[in-house]
């Protein structure tokens, strides 16, 4: 049971988050709801990238926590490279979310609605 959970639970979580976000993006009409879906997809992707860097006996990749990141030349820490990529990706995600919200506010000021179908009708 424990081995099964260690192998699969994080991957199940990330795939479920990506699927739920995709469902929101495909079905909802409100622009803000679509942005909420994109944020959930982003969380799932970050979780997936961290999960493939981990193994059950890993320690934090920080020499302050322990001296023994490497025992006899074998490294036992978690992989720090995906962690550094995700660290910057989260901050960029906030910037792009704020930009999308600003565009949504401008669309509301012009058309008076946030429904994508009504905006499409008003375009005609």
């Amino acid at each position: 049971m424990q081995v099964f959970l260690q192998n699969w639970i994080y991957l199940i979580a990330s795939v479920s988050l990506i699927g739920v976000g995709l469902y929101i993006v495909l079905t909802k009409e409100n622009i803000f709801r679509i942005i909420v879906g994109l944020n959930i997809i982003e969380s799932g992707t970050n979780l997936f990238m961290i999960a493939i860097a981990w193994h059950p006996k890993a320690v934090m990749p920080i020499y302050t926590a322990t001296d023994h990141l490497a025992v006899n030349g074998k490294v036992i820490a978690a992989d720090p490279l995906p962690q550094s990529l995700v660290l910057t990706a989260i901050v960029i995600g906030l910037g792009t979310t704020a930009l999308a919200l600003a565009i949504g506010v401008k669309i509301f000021e012009k058309y008076g609605t946030l429904d994508v179908r009504k905006i499409k009708e008003a375009e005609k």
Partner: peptide, 15 residues
């Protein structure tokens, strides 16, 4: 899970 081996990745050089 147990299949991940950091020693086969580039990250070993960084650590």
């Amino acid at each position: 899970g147990w299949g991940v081996n950091v020693n086969n990745r580039v990250s070993r050089l960084y650590i």
